[in-house]
Design a protein around this nucleic acid. Sequence first.
DNA 1: GACGCAGACTGATCTGGATCAGTCCAGCAT
DNA 2: ATGCTGGACTGATCCAGATCAGTCTGCGTC
Lengths: 243, 243
Amino acid sequence: MTALHSPFARKLGAFVALSNVEFDVLERLHSRRRVFPAGRDIMHEGQANQSAYILASGWVCSYKLLPGGTRQIVDFQIPGDFLGLRSVLFRTADHNIEPVTKIEASEVLAAYLINAFSTTPRLAAAVLWAASRDEAMVVEHLVGIGRRDARGRMAHFLLELGARLKLVGLATREGYACPLSQYMLADALGLSAVHVNRVLRELREDGLVTFQQGQVTFDDFDGLVTVAEFDRHYLDHEGPLMK
Amino acid sequence: MTALHSPFARKLGAFVALSNVEFDVLERLHSRRRVFPAGRDIMHEGQANQSAYILASGWVCSYKLLPGGTRQIVDFQIPGDFLGLRSVLFRTADHNIEPVTKIEASEVLAAYLINAFSTTPRLAAAVLWAASRDEAMVVEHLVGIGRRDARGRMAHFLLELGARLKLVGLATREGYACPLSQYMLADALGLSAVHVNRVLRELREDGLVTFQQGQVTFDDFDGLVTVAEFDRHYLDHEGPLMK
DNA sequence: GACGCAGACTGATCTGGATCAGTCCAGCAT
DNA sequence: ATGCTGGACTGATCCAGATCAGTCTGCGTC
């Protein structure tokens, strides 16, 4: 059953047990499918009247630029994730979105969404859940940057990404394919690219993880969990909440 | 008209122009009002089946603890803010909540909320908006910790708090009352208490802000905005979106 | 009125990670 | 074949902020 649905519907289905009608509304939500090339931003901070998207395939990152020229990547999105939901709610985008790879995404019209809430109110709760899950990830990211050292941050980041990808079938306990450059890791983790490189080497030399040629390999999963202080329950919400 | 409503209804009213019926539903949402003393946590990470609250008066902070013993304060909540919405959606709390002062808060039952979404779907959008606004603040906080230095972080933090408090009538352009200790600031900004003290002194000596005896005074608002790289549009969403 | 305690504050020292200034590839365009 | 570009990688140096080890209030309490 789940295999028939989009990653997005699958994700929401993990929260509320959805009826066929609700699944239908969901699938019809993403009507206009579009393809974007890697590297060129699809959304800019300050831009008004942006539409939101649901990511179907590929990776993107959301980031903010500071006047000083540095950037902070807030999060990466993978298939099934919302892109720019806040930008719709706020009428003007409060962050930038750049495809890391070529992506496919379907446009979601705000009016459509509100309308779906009226006809199928449980979807409102489900979308609220998805938004809260995103927030939880940003919070975890914040804690990492505020209180973990570079090694811990990197370890935690690689594990979290693994957990998220596993959920959509793109990772195993062994590892996963990862199209991120060390520069992007640096911008995400609040480090310099130079230091990212060193930390990655350390982790590799300690036999914990290897990140080379776009491939993350867990050499010692449990060891990595330890240095990351990774909470194994984080992100598994054990089955639908609302029946 | 707005003065008649709770801070929470006021906040949502800033997003959707609410009908009287909708206002009524909103006010009935927070039924059971409770009082909690300062200092003793009202929610613990890992705790199941927590209820959510809407803060009516006082300050609280949400934080996470790391195994190492350090803590990261994720955000402070002020009147009108949701407490622990994620904990309800996830069934188990993913952070701790500690009242900074004595607080009054009204319990919100999940079933009640879902029900309100069905009868008044526009409220669903409004709550989603409020949740997104919270997320936007966490994101800004993340960017600050990741890419701003200690001075900038502190300056930005004090300005943001000012902006939020002004919205509920608890601050002016001159300053505001702030019950936070330097230790709390440290835990929020990812700094040590010692360094918070020094940064605060620097900002005071530079004639930018004074934070003494629970009182924040903006000595040079524009100067502060400059060192904080504070976006003046951040957090003012210029009137109701949905008419 | 002394004891205990929490918060603000300070100086001295240490260190994680930034910054600077590169090299060394593997494409890929000319 | 030659140059160019972007990412991975390295060594040397520097500095923002942590840590350690205090002092100095004011305030509650026994």
